[in-house]
């Protein structure tokens, strides 16, 4: 089996194993797995409305997945995607409610601001890592909490008068599309999916085709050799965090300018940023892989909402299945081992 084929095989098997164990869990807890999965499938693709919702959910998933994957390719573990996303969300909404402008200026400005906000939020851990070797995992986790509480504070005091929600953004900053909504039976599908796909393309192009990407990959694989070859390792660490954070900030813009149109005080994290870790892992940290795994996670997430309604299965079960898939991807070593076993048998 060639390496490429195997890389494709592992996530597929992980997903199948996840679903299989989900089935077992349903049986053990007394639910009908066939009804369960049917309602899951129906809840994701059974209806244009649901499909629209799936794509809407996939939109931020692609971006948060790209954010994690991008940093990972340079050897950094950005757990701060969640915080960068929250910051991006608020920044986009802020621009959206602050003034009204022609759409061609307003919308790009709001999107760009979100990217910049996310980038700044990621720049701090990048800088600390580059200058003082402070581990990015620790700093990004702390930055998540700072993001959560600061944005809540700003929403309460600056962007509203002690309300827990901002005003709705001006139409000129909105990603919403009556056309797409009409097409999908009035789901909340918006133009953001195009931005997500464009970002996936950008990541692929940047990493694989440009000198910047060459440096980033090189530093990710072997920073000693990169330094020896004259690359500035610290600059590349910071740059990769900035780009990663920009993707995360854009994920926030998708929620703020597309799905919701406002920012609200949050009791806890959105989870989209953390799910990005799973999306990236399942997608093998490549742009194309991230698109497909975001689609899977989006479908599971949206389809799950239908499970309690149609088959009485609590949608927490879907969270368990997602967790199991992540578990099996993470233990891909085990799967690889099984495949090799299988191959050797085949040869003899």
């Amino acid at each position: 089996m060639t390496k490429r084929l195997r890389n494709l095989f592992i996530p597929v098997i992980a997903v199948l194993l996840g679903i299989l164990s989900g089935t077992l869990i349903m049986i053990v807890s007394g639910y009908d797995p066939i009804a369960g999965f049917t309602s899951l499938w129906y809840g994701a693709f059974g209806d244009l409305y649901y499909t629209g919702e799936v794509i809407r959910q996939v939109t931020p998933y692609i971006l948060s997945g790209l954010a994690v994957a991008f940093a990972f390719r340079v050897g950094l573990f950005n757990i701060g995607v969640e915080g960068q996303l929250i910051v991006g969300w608020l920044a986009a909404v802020w621009i959206g409610v602050a003034f009204e402008l022609p759409k061609v200026i307003h919308l790009p400005l709001a999107i760009l601001t979100a990217a910049v906000a996310g980038a700044i939020w990621a720049f701090i851990p990048g800088l600390l890592k580059a200058k003082f070797r402070v581990h990015e995992v620790i700093v990004t986790i702390m930055m998540n909490y700072i993001a959560l509480h600061i944005t809540n504070y700003i929403i309460r005091t600056v962007l509203s008068e002690k309300s827990d929600k901002t005003k709705t953004i001006f139409e000129s900053a909105s990603l919403r599309s009556p056309f797409l909504e009409g097409l999908t039976d009035y789901s909340r599908l918006h133009w953001g999916i195009l931005i997500s796909l464009a970002c996936a393309f950008t990541m692929w192009f940047l990493l694989e085709k440009t000198t910047i990407g060459y440096e980033l990959r090189s530093v990710g694989f072997n920073h000693h050799a990169s330094q020896y070859a004259g690359m500035n390792v610290n600059r590349n660490i910071i740059l990769s965090m900035i780009i990663s954070g920009a993707f995360a900030g854009l994920a926030g813009a998708m929620e703020g300018l597309g799905t919701f149109g406002y920012a609200a005080v949050k009791g806890g994290f959105t989870g989209v940023g953390f799910d990005g870790i799973a999306v990236a892992l399942l997608g093998g940290n490549t742009a194309v892989g991230v698109i497909f795994s975001a689609l899977l996670f989006g479908a599971l997430k949206v389809g799950a909402l239908n499970m309690p309604l149609e088959s009485g299965i609590p949608n927490e079960l879907v969270d368990i299945i997602i967790a199991l898939i992540v578990f099996f991807v993470a233990s891909s070593y085990m799967i690889r081992w099984i495949i090799d076993r299988f191959n050797n048998k085949g040869v003899k």
Partner: peptide, 21 residues
């Protein structure tokens, strides 16, 4: 291994480690 090559790059990409830009 430490300084001379990026082992996970193809040998071709290793040939321009200083001159890629």
């Amino acid at each position: 291994h430490k300084h001379g090559l990026v082992l996970d790059f193809p040998i071709g990409e290793n040939m321009v480690l200083q001159t890629y830009h």
